[in-house]
C-alpha cells in the first residue's frame, strides 16, 4: 500500500461523508450488509480513512453493490453512518469519472 494520505478524509466532506474517521472498524457493517460480500463496505471506509484514493477508484464499481438499504447505518455501534459514507464515495467516484 502506498503512503497514507491524511487529507483525503477532509476532501471527502465535500461529498457528504464526514463521519468516516469515527468508524472503529468493528466489521458490523460488512457482516450485516445483505450483499454478504467480502469486507464490503468496511473496506471502502477503511481506504477512505487512510486516504487510499487509488484503491477506492480501482475498486469503485464495488460501491454500486450498495443498495442504500441503510441497515449498516442503523446497526453501526459508533453511529459512523457507513451507508452515507458509501453514498459519498459514489458521488466522489462519479465526480472523478466525469472529470476524467
Amino acid at each position: 500500500m502506498a503512503l497514507v494520505n491524511p487529507n483525503f478524509a477532509e476532501e471527502m466532506e465535500r461529498f457528504g461523508a464526514d463521519a468516516a474517521l469515527e468508524c472503529f472498524n468493528c466489521g458490523t457493517c460488512a457482516a450485516i450488509c445483505p450483499l454478504i460480500y467480502e469486507h464490503f463496505p468496511r473496506k471502502m471506509i477503511r481506504y477512505l480513512q487512510l486516504g487510499a484514493k487509488d484503491r477506492i477508484m480501482e475498486n469503485a464499481s464495488e460501491l454500486w453493490r450498495c443498495l442504500h438499504c441503510g441497515l449498516c447505518t442503523q446497526t453501526c455501534p459508533r453511529e459512523a453512518d457507513p451507508g452515507e459514507i458509501i453514498l459519498g464515495l459514489k458521488r466522489f467516484a462519479v465526480a472523478n469519472w466525469r472529470r476524467s
Partner: peptide, 14 residues
C-alpha cells in the same frame, strides 16, 4: 475520549 479522538480525525492503525 476514544470517540472524541476519532471525531477529531485521529487515524487508528492496529
Amino acid at each position: 475520549l476514544y470517540e472524541q479522538a476519532a471525531k477529531n480525525k485521529v487515524v487508528f492503525l492496529r
